Deep mutational scan, measured.
Amino acid sequence: EDYYQILGVPRNASQKEIKKAYYQLAKKYHPDTNKDDPKAKEKFSQLAEAYEVLSDEVKRKQYDA
């Protein structure tokens, strides 16, 4: 799945936009606030993985290549 789609940001998003999108979605899908939703944990880990790659310039360049 596309990391940009997961975070809901365009491919040319700035680091600030990526961070903002991640924090909004992380708050929304955090397992502690969605105890009754088994998919929230999965969504949250996808968000974390996408953010880890896109927030790191080197990893992001490799991902975009």
Rank of each mutant, 00 (worst) to 15 (best):
Y22E: 01
K19G: 07
K59L: 08
R11M: 05
V9D: 00
K39D: 14
E57V: 12
Y51R: 02
D36E: 13
L47A: 05
K16C: 11
Y51H: 04
P10D: 12
Y3K: 03
I6N: 02
E17Y: 06
E49D: 08
Q62N: 11
L7G: 00
G8N: 09
Q46M: 12
D2R: 03
D2K: 03
A21I: 04
K19N: 09
H30C: 07
E57P: 15
K20G: 09
L25S: 06
I18Y: 01
K61S: 05
Y63S: 02
K16Y: 14
D56C: 04
K61V: 05
K35S: 11
K35G: 10
Y4R: 01
I18S: 00
D2P: 03
K28F: 08
Y4G: 00
D2E: 04
A50H: 00
V9F: 00
T33W: 10
E49T: 10
S55V: 06
A50F: 01
Y22A: 03
K35I: 11
Y29D: 04
Q24F: 13
E1H: 15
A21H: 08
A21F: 04
H30D: 14
V53F: 03
A40R: 10
L47E: 01
T33D: 08
A40M: 10
Y3F: 13
E57W: 13
R60K: 08
K28H: 08
F44G: 05
L54M: 03
H30E: 10
A13E: 01
P38T: 07
Q24V: 11
R11Q: 07
Y51T: 01
E1T: 13
E42T: 11
D32L: 08
D2A: 04
E57G: 04
Q62H: 11
S45H: 12
Y63A: 03
S45I: 13
Y4T: 00
E52P: 02
L7V: 03
S14Q: 05
K35C: 09
A40T: 09
T33A: 12
E57Q: 06
R60I: 01
E52G: 11
A13Q: 01
E42I: 15
Y63R: 03
Q62I: 13
A26D: 03
A40Q: 08
A21K: 08
Q46V: 12
L7A: 00
D32I: 13
A65P: 05
L25P: 01
Y3V: 02
K16F: 15
K41V: 10
Y63F: 04
K19H: 15
S45N: 11
Y3H: 04
S14D: 09
D56T: 02
D37R: 06
K16W: 09
L25H: 05
R60Q: 01
P31V: 07
A65M: 12
D64W: 02
D37F: 06
L25I: 06
